[in-house]
Design a protein around this nucleic acid. Structure first.
Lengths: 200, 200
DNA sequence: CGAGTGATTGACTTAGATCAATGACCGTGG
DNA sequence: CCACGGTCATTGATCTAAGTCAATCACTCG
């Protein structure tokens, strides 16, 4: 998770929770950034007006995601943030975060490591989206998330969530899993999937 | 670009070019990281053996991409890197990079800002892949890449490259652009596309 | 006990992938 | 200077995997 585990206690303690109703704005383009947001629950969208004047979604943040890291280094928000569900966020004040990073090399190091990991993860997820076949996409996901020892993937959320992550409909996911199980490629148990053998 | 423009001259000068033949390994999982790679030309893949023992692609790096940032903070590579075309990379030694980051807060700041921007960009590209319709995907891209004044997108590469970025076949891209032009939504000129009016 | 959601399966439709062919360029080697 | 091989751009025809719509069952929760 890109949760703010890298932040020192001192700063974490300053994190102020804020509740948003669905549709409510968290911040607006052009405003001076107030800090780093962490989504506690619900979903928040980063939205920008494009060249045509239409709203275009840059990113939909869900629980655990961190928002507006880039704004830490910039004098103004480059997009709007609006809650798409009722949501709770935690705000870590900009000054406190920057101060912690500059004061303590350990914190800076941890912050950079976290961002580097986030980049890796995003690149892998993007790579997965280059795969056209649903089955291959599922294999890509399972192969990388299975525990090497037990060859088992513990599902963190629902199958519907997984379908969203994979970029396919939940129906397609159900059907493909069913087929993979029928082919003896995987074994299904509630909340987990076990890889059985290499496909033909 | 995530090019290493944030690196101080001193370190940049130490960057040693290395040429790879297609298929050649750049580094292997488990090895001690040597530094930060920047792709000059060609393509290099990050590959890992998954739980099933199959090779799974984590990321395909192209010119301008930076490789193995995460390994800067880790004692061993977590995957293999192999050239998929003849390629040229530049290596910035690990010690020099880390030293520069720790010595100069400006460099650290720039590095963090670069990573934050990279994260934003990746998230936006991932968001785009959630869009199912090819036309909407193209709109998303054009809307965000058009110069707001001229409403014009200057294409950096070929249309085939753009199709890859969008995750659709080049045929689908050609056809959709043709249709959008016919509908008066865009205007095409060699190497650039101009947004005309909001779609119905 | 309804209401709400996840899981699952069936039927039907379609956007986009695939396969194929053509013309425009472009560098280059004889 | 030109023919040849290679890539890009483009369009047509065809096919199919996956999306869409819809219904059912199992659960959980207040």
């Amino acid at each position: 998770m890109s949760a703010a585990g890298w932040l020192p206690e001192r700063v974490r303690a300053e994190g102020a929770k804020r509740s948003l109703k669905s549709g409510q704005m968290l911040f607006r383009m052009g405003q001076r950034p107030t800090g780093l947001y962490e989504i506690v629950s619900g979903r928040v969208r980063l939205v920008r007006l494009d060249a045509r004047g239409r709203e275009t979604v840059l990113f939909t943040a869900a629980a655990g995601d961190t928002l507006a890291e880039a704004s830490l280094f910039s004098p103004a928000y480059h997009c709007d943030a609006v809650a798409v569900t009722d949501a709770v966020v935690r705000l870590y004040p900009r000054a406190a975060v920057i101060d912690a990073i500059q004061r303590d090399p350990k914190v800076a190091q941890a912050f950079m490591a976290m961002m580097a990991r986030e980049i890796m993860s995003l690149r892998t997820r993007l790579e997965r989206r280059n795969i056209h076949s649903a089955r291959e996409r599922i294999r890509h996901y399972l192969g990388l998330h299975a525990d090497p020892k037990s060859r088992t993937v513990v599902l963190s959320g629902t199958l519907k969530d997984l379908a969203v992550e994979l970029g396919i409909t939940h129906e397609a996911l159900y059907r493909t899993l069913r087929d993979m199980a029928a082919d003896g490629e995987i074994e299904r148990r509630p909340g987990r999937i076990r890889l059985l053998r290499a496909p033909v």
